[in-house]
Write a protein that binds this DNA or RNA. Sequence first.
DNA 1: AGCGTTAGCACAATCGATTGCGCAAAACTT
DNA 2: AAGTTTTGCGCAATCGATTGTGCTAACGCT
Lengths: 346, 346
Amino acid sequence: MPSSRKLTIYDLASLAGTSASTVSAVLNGTWKKRRISKASAEAIQKIAEEAGYLHNMQARGLRKHRSGLIGMIIPLHDNRFFSSISQVFEREARARDFWPIVVSTLRDPEMEISTARTLMSYRIEYLLVTGATDPDGIGSVCDAAGVRHVNLDLPGRTAPSIISDNYQGAYDLANAVYDRIFAETGEKAPWVPFLGGRAQDHATARRIEGFSDAARDRGMPLYPEQIEARGYAPELAEATIRKLYETHGKLPSGLFINSTIAFEGVIRFFRTLPRNELHTLVVGCYDWDPFATLVDFPLIMVRQDVEKLVTGAFSLIDAGDFSAREPILVQPQLVTDLGGYDRRDA
Amino acid sequence: MPSSRKLTIYDLASLAGTSASTVSAVLNGTWKKRRISKASAEAIQKIAEEAGYLHNMQARGLRKHRSGLIGMIIPLHDNRFFSSISQVFEREARARDFWPIVVSTLRDPEMEISTARTLMSYRIEYLLVTGATDPDGIGSVCDAAGVRHVNLDLPGRTAPSIISDNYQGAYDLANAVYDRIFAETGEKAPWVPFLGGRAQDHATARRIEGFSDAARDRGMPLYPEQIEARGYAPELAEATIRKLYETHGKLPSGLFINSTIAFEGVIRFFRTLPRNELHTLVVGCYDWDPFATLVDFPLIMVRQDVEKLVTGAFSLIDAGDFSAREPILVQPQLVTDLGGYDRRDA
DNA sequence: AGCGTTAGCACAATCGATTGCGCAAAACTT
DNA sequence: AAGTTTTGCGCAATCGATTGTGCTAACGCT
């Protein structure tokens, strides 16, 4: 049972026979400025190390008005896109001597706000708002507390936003799907439903536009029931594709799937089908996952540029420039030639 | 440019015409105990809300010796297993009114220690040590600071550990792979290399034992070069499988892949092969990923019980019992009938 | 009226680190 | 030797919230 009594600079001071202010100066590196002798400094550092002293960041932060914390909220951890963002966020935060705190808010607007408030009560110095349902709601809470913030992945109007070029990505993805279907089957106006996401969200809305314009530019008609974007849950996508299959008695020629999360639901349904049913299918998926690349049908994915998204946010922080209001677009990358072993060798 | 001056209880006190201690009592809920009138309480709450007051957790934590923080270190975010753990960890922490901080340490022992130290300088109240390379090194740092901690996924000797039953999981997985190969091809003693992980790590060591015993129990010989466990990087697995392929001129009959991370590397290599090369392959993978389920060859995966692992750790915390030294085993689940559409319908 | 209770709140110390200021001794100057 | 400068460090206030203690006014009772 280790003692929970923690060492303070006062303990070190009495161990070293000096004052607490000297210890403080030595341990935070200001001792040269404060004209502490090298001998004292080294003695104190040695004692601190041997005693296993740890700074109390609460006391330090309280006094200095700087916590050293930087926060990020994300919709969920359990997803390749967002967890990659966390990974890069951590790296960039540490490179700047910040301590990263990442929390998920499950796309719940209330949770987003309350999470932001809690983070601010721990006195985070910046906040990255990633994929938030209500970026401006969070923004106003941050502004009220004077916390600088940047939106990521979904744009807001009250702070700078770094987002993927969803329109262009979706436009290119849709075209790639149509091209591939034409190459496979010769169909010129195939039935390709749009699946997943939430039509109210900016990203999904832009992707729907890109998707729709791709069809229109090819002179293809668009039907309202072609677009199913009522939510992110895998279950919704699973139910939708099942219903499509049951209604039409077969799969569509292609699918435009709006996220790997929806794709998970689609895959659950696919696993209930006999394999040959998948042979006439081409799938496009907005977002990338390494394991999806080996599926048994032609697949085209959009890989968002996580590095540029996150480092873009940090360069705004570095520059201290939070004035941008027009979203800064980052181009995603189209990844073709995935899946579909069958026809590639046939 | 919002003012960075933050509201304090003193500001609220002068707004309300009371003392700071009254404000404090009202805002932290102890006002009934302190016999503050309901009228004052409500007035102060109203003022605090309208002014957008946020608690300063640094000051509160300093005074109360409780930060309300609970930390967890994980090897990396960008992985289905660990990000699921983060997700459950967050949920459980919040359910206990703790604020979760998750950081990755990239399997670097030095980073593990320094990360633990930094977390403790923010005065986290508990630490979950997940998948650490050096759990006992972290343990001694925690003990020195009097911070209770639990090991997850990899066991230590200085604190309770909750881990998967890696031996049994690997034993079952190996047997399932052998059975499946026999069902597919009739081979009784197929060549099945073990790929990925680090042989020094406890989890990998136990899995190698399970894998080896499964072979021995079937009267199969074991060759030293059958086991390749020099690291986690996808690139290592990719190079290994490529070399195996080039040496033998074909793929092995089966693969025992020790993590989805290694599996990613294997898949990169597979994508360079013509599809029919995969037709004689059975893969077992320790760990689960939803997208891997649709690959083009028979696949058996081990799905670890993330829920039980994390909630198991929390029940130790709830009970305040940090005495256990024998690892607590959680049974993983074998997921069969994945992938391999070809032969399923053929 | 006089006394004990209770209600309602304020005072001031405290948590641990930081920092402006000041002071004594040593070193240097002329 | 007296004055000036430098060296080396300690004092005490401060950050914002919590909490043990104490004080005053109102109330109840006889």
